[in-house]
């Protein structure tokens, strides 16, 4: 199957879409989106703890996206610089935060292993892993040893899914779906 970004974007926009974006992922954009979404959540959700959970996960998801986008090398493609997608959608009583970005194929194996490990852990094990990484791992400006993903898994009881779609022999499109 050939790669079609519009198709993938469409697939990500299922449910009652509160916000959908496709384009350059910049710090300013994230700041603006967080502001807009916070206002929106205040209107649609009463329970403060639910609002906070969604907002927290959105911050982690978008900042993860911001830090981990790989740019496609050829300037001939039509993608914006630092291209990424994100969608916030409501499905029944649940909220889904979906992100998508290009990633080098040689990173896939490690990322898959990290997801599978995190998804296999119990709540208590996730808590211990979080504390271990927090206390022991070196951090860079990009974040800290997958702490963002562990944090998301903790807050959602592991309801984090992912899929890779091959773009070419060097790159794939990585999509993540977090359910709250």
């Amino acid at each position: 199957m050939s790669f079609n970004i519009e198709e993938l974007f469409k697939e990500m926009k299922t449910g009652e879409v509160l916000l959908a974006y496709k384009g350059s992922i910049t710090a300013e954009l994230i700041t603006n989106v967080l502001g807009v979404v916070e206002t929106k959540l205040n209107h649609v959700i009463d329970k403060s703890s639910t609002k906070k959970k969604i907002y927290n996960i959105l911050v982690e998801s978008l900042q993860n996206l911001y830090h981990h986008v790989d740019d496609l090398p050829d300037s001939t493609n039509s993608m914006d610089v630092h291209f990424g997608i994100f969608v916030i959608a409501k499905d029944g009583e649940e909220y889904n935060i979906r992100t998508g970005n290009f990633i080098k194929n040689d990173k896939i194996k490690k990322l898959k292993e990290r997801f599978e490990k995190i998804k296999s852990l119990s709540k208590e094990e996730l808590k211990e892993l979080y504390k271990f990484v927090l206390n022991n791992q070196m951090f860079s400006d990009k974040g800290g040893g997958g702490l963002g993903l562990i944090d998301i898994a903790r807050r959602t009881d592991g309801r984090v899914d992912y899929i890779f779609n091959e773009y070419d022999s060097n790159y794939s499109f990585f999509r993540m779906n977090v359910t709250i």
Binding site: K52, N56, V59, E60, G144
Partner: peptide, 13 residues
């Protein structure tokens, strides 16, 4: 704190 992200969590530690 109302919110903090994981990037802040290490600094807070």
């Amino acid at each position: 704190l109302e919110y903090f992200n994981t990037s802040s969590s290490k600094c807070i530690l």
